[in-house]
Every structure is written in structure tokens, then in C-alpha cells.
Design a protein around this nucleic acid. Structure first.
Lengths: 102, 102
DNA sequence: CGGCATCCTACGCGATACTG
DNA sequence: CAGTATCGCGTAGGATGCCG
């Protein structure tokens, strides 16, 4: 499996956002920048998982972390240009889901 | 996480082919029908994993199993119309991967 | 609020071996 | 060739608790 995911463009994308969690993060952030807790609620995932996924996406330059000062803390996540480019992929998926999955 | 994947079209698609293996199966079958062993080699996965994924995709009417008689056995997998409709999604991914992932 | 640390469990998945 | 069965490990990911 490893080989295919490093060779082919499709495989590489799959390796990056090929899990439901990362994909849904991108989907949400395409809508608008969001805070950690907002994502947490939207996805219904644990903070642990969310934090880990966000870190990967940040390292891959898909997502930007912006920390506003103040107390309590406030952090906004948004998409980079590279991340926003997932728009086409997500829309293709949405279109498919709407048409074929009830 | 469960909720988001049953509510939103994108989530539902993710639940279906939101893992690298299933996605790569679809990618391959978009090219042409393939035999079990061909998929096995192409993906570099174990027969166990492949068989399980294929069963799911078959149950979801993404993939069709066609058994030719003869010995040794020969089985061809191909996409249904519903499966072929993933073309747009896969192409969007390929386009993204080509542009942004080296 | 936005995390990180810890613990714990389920399961994905490869390796191997065996059948029709 | 096309699977199924069994074992065994690595890991994803929830639950909980703590801290700046």
C-alpha cells in the first residue's frame, strides 16, 4: 500500500486527507476560519484527535494557526492557498454524495 | 465523528471511500476492469485487506464482481455506474496532487 | 479556551497457511 | 487464481484529567 501512496498523485492526496477527520476539517475551513472548539463540535471528535490532525495539516501547509492574544485563549484556524485548493475536490465529493448517497 | 459522516454528503463519501485502499481500488477500476491479483499487485496490499474492501464496495454497489468459469478461477472486478461516477472526484484529486504535491 | 499527557481498547492490516 | 482463517502487532482514537 505504501508504494502506491508515494507514487501516484491520487495516492498522495489520499495519504494527506485520506481519512474522514482531515477531510472534514478541510470541508469546514473552506466555509470559514474556525476556532478549535468550533471544529471540535462540528466534527464531534475528541480534542486529542483534532489537535493531532491539525498539526499534520499545519505542517503540510494546508492549514494556518493564528493565535489571538487574550484570556481565555483564542485560536483561529484557516486554510492556506494550498488548502483552499481542495475546494474542487470537496465539491466533487459533495456533488457525488448528493447525487448518489441518501 | 460518526454524526458528521452520516449527516453531510461530503462526510458520507468520506465514510465510503475515505480510506486510501478503497480510493485506490476505484482509481484503478476507473482505468479498466481488473482481476483480483492485478489489484493486489497494483495496490501492494494483502489479499485479506483487498478482499474485505472489495466486499464493502460490492455491497455498496460501487463495484461489480464477475466470475468467469475455468480453472484456475478468474474473477473480474469493474465499476458500476455509481462507481464510475467517482471519476470526477478522482480526477479532482489527481489534479490537486499533480499541482500541489511533488 | 486550547491544548498535551496518560491510559486503554478496538480494529486495521500484514504475514502466513490452507482450500476449491 | 481467488479467496478464507488465524494470529499478532501497531496504531487510531475515545475518555479523562491537568495546565497556561
Amino acid at each position: 500500500m505504501e508504494h502506491a501512496m508515494k507514487t501516484c498523485p491520487v495516492g498522495k492526496v489520499a495519504a494527506l486527507v485520506g481519512d474522514p477527520c482531515s477531510l472534514l476539517i478541510v470541508r469546514d475551513l473552506l466555509e470559514s476560519p474556525m476556532r478549535f472548539s468550533e471544529l471540535e463540535r462540528s466534527l464531534g471528535s475528541s480534542s486529542r484527535t483534532l489537535a493531532k490532525k491539525l498539526k499534520v495539516l499545519e505542517k503540510e501547509k494546508i492549514v494556518t494557526r493564528k493565535e489571538m492574544r487574550g484570556t481565555p485563549a483564542c485560536v483561529k484556524y484557516s486554510l492556506t492557498k494550498k488548502g483552499a485548493a481542495f475546494h474542487e475536490v470537496v465539491e466533487a465529493m459533495r456533488s457525488y454524495g448528493t447525487k448518489y448517497l441518501r
